[in-house]
C-alpha cells in the first residue's frame, strides 16, 4: 500500500485496546493535506488582494490559477489511490 506522505505526520495515538484485532492501518492520520490546502487558500487570498490593490489584475488572476493547479497536483494522487484501492478491494477489474 502506497501512503501519501509529505513531511509532517500527525500521530493521534488513542490507546483504547478493546478490540485488539484491527491493527492493520495504524492510527496515523494523513491529514496534512487539509492543512496544506488551508494554507494555500490563505496564501492565495493574501496574494490576490495584494496584487489587486497594486492594480495588477492579470497577475491576481494568475495566482488563483496557480493555487488551483497546486491543489489539484496534491489532491489527485489521493483520489487515484482511493480508486485503485476500491478496485482491488471490490475486485472491480
Amino acid at each position: 500500500m502506497r501512503r501519501y506522505d509529505v513531511g509532517v505526520d500527525i500521530d493521534v495515538d488513542i490507546d483504547i485496546d478493546v478490540d485488539g484485532d484491527i491493527k492493520e492501518c495504524g492510527t496515523m492520520i494523513d491529514g496534512e493535506i487539509i492543512f496544506f490546502l488551508t494554507g494555500l487558500a490563505i496564501a492565495v487570498t493574501i496574494l490576490h488582494t495584494f496584487l489587486k490593490q497594486a492594480g495588477r489584475d492579470e497577475y491576481a488572476y494568475l495566482t488563483l490559477i496557480v493555487g488551483l493547479t497546486i491543489a489539484l497536483l496534491k489532491v489527485i494522487p489521493i483520489v487515484q489511490q482511493l480508486f485503485t484501492q476500491v478496485q482491488s478491494v471490490f475486485k472491480l477489474y
Binding site: I22, E24, L40, V44, T45, H48, I78, V79, Q81, Q85
Partner: peptide, 28 residues
C-alpha cells in the same frame, strides 16, 4: 477565501482519506 474551489477539494481529499482508512477493514 478567494479560492472557494479549494473547499471542495478539501472535502474530496478528506472523503478519500476516510475511505482509505476504512478500506483495509472492509477488505478483511
Amino acid at each position: 477565501s478567494k479560492l472557494p474551489v479549494l473547499g471542495l477539494m478539501v472535502v474530496l481529499a478528506c472523503g478519500s482519506l476516510i475511505f482509505l482508512k476504512v478500506l483495509p477493514q472492509l477488505a478483511e
